[in-house]
């Protein structure tokens, strides 16, 4: 039962832990496969996710934050979450140190539709913690082998405060590059903040990316999505050209355990990436 069993995790080692935000409840975990075979098998695209597995605690579905162009590791950004009924795995991960060994199942789900995105202008809109698989996509597109496959890249990323922005070092690098337009905003700045202030939807309106040959990739908290979508409709983006990634409780990750459905689609295997046109076909049950 051990070989090719989709329920059995592969062993990985945490080789680096990055404390991402000033509230210390979001950390990135860089994982290295303990077996060369597993590493070779783990071929993924931006937008996919994996089940991080801690024996005794369980499994948690987390989007892959690294890009397949980054070699030698896979990275996940995890928020310590939870209620009295949930969040065991994320808590356990946050209590771990570099060198700890955990399990990994994946890659799971579909991905950002790379072929569909090719030759188009890409507008990436992210809010708060939901920036992880967007970062994967951006780094993938920015890679020297890939950059020419895509048109203009615009990134609009917002967080509540400067301290809550993820991947601060990378954001700084992107801001300096001239092949990507990076707009960072915070709901409310502090004494040292020199950048933009304002909510993501307002900033999108302000930046007003052109819908011409463009695709918007939007991920964020429900409230951000709710107010951002009308902005993009007003700008003239069609529902086919707005993509998002859904979140549901997932367990198996392979469309068997039956809990993550929205209508007849399973978010884990038919998604998590959907275009708005596809979502419109599904009952609002998420």
């Amino acid at each position: 039962m051990c070989s090719n069993n989709p329920y059995i995790p592969m062993p990985v080692e945490i080789i680096k832990i990055i404390d991402e935000v000033d509230t210390h409840d979001i950390k990135s975990f860089r994982l290295k496969f303990l077996s060369k075979e597993d590493e070779a098998k783990f071929k993924y695209l931006p937008g996919q996710f994996s089940e991080l597995s801690v024996y005794g605690k369980g499994e948690s579905p987390i989007g892959i934050a690294s890009s397949p162009t980054e070699e030698g590791y896979v990275e996940f950004t995890v928020q310590r979450a939870g209620t009295i009924q949930s969040g065991l795995v994320t808590a356990a991960l946050h209590d771990m140190n570099e060198g700890a060994k955990i399990g990994l199942r994946g890659p799971l789900g579909n991905s950002w539709p790379i072929e569909f995105l090719e030759k188009k202008n890409i507008v990436v809109v992210g809010g708060g913690f939901a920036f992880t698989t967007l970062r994967s996509l951006i780094n993938y597109m920015l890679h020297k082998d890939n950059r020419s496959r895509f048109g203009e890249i615009t990134v609009i990323y917002g967080a509540r405060t400067p301290g809550l922005l993820l991947y601060k070092d990378e954001l700084a690098v992107w801001e300096k590059r001239d092949d990507i337009k990076t707009i960072i905003t915070v709901d409310k700045g502090d004494e040292t903040w020199k950048g933009r202030e304002g909510f993501v939807p307002a900033v999108c309106k302000d930046v007003a990316p052109s819908p011409k040959n463009a695709v918007a990739v939007i991920c964020g908290p429900p409230i951000m999505i709710k107010f951002t979508l009308p902005v993009f409709f007003d700008l003239g983006f069609s529902k086919e050209n707005i993509l998002t990634s859904l979140e549901m409780r997932m367990k198996c990750g392979i469309g068997k355990c039956g809990r993550c459905n929205v209508g007849y689609k399973y978010v884990c295997s038919d998604g998590p990436v959907f275009s708005l046109a596809e979502l419109d076909e599904l009952p609002r049950d998420f």
């Binding site: 005794g56 979450a81 949930s86 549901m248 409780r249 039956g258 809990r259």
Partner: peptide, 28 residues
Amino acid sequence: DETLFSKGVRRRVWDACMFTDFTLEASG
């Protein structure tokens, strides 16, 4: 994951869409 002292087993167990926590996400 069902653990008794240090030893445990990861297993699948029937679940039901009628249970409140069936779709409860980690975030609450």
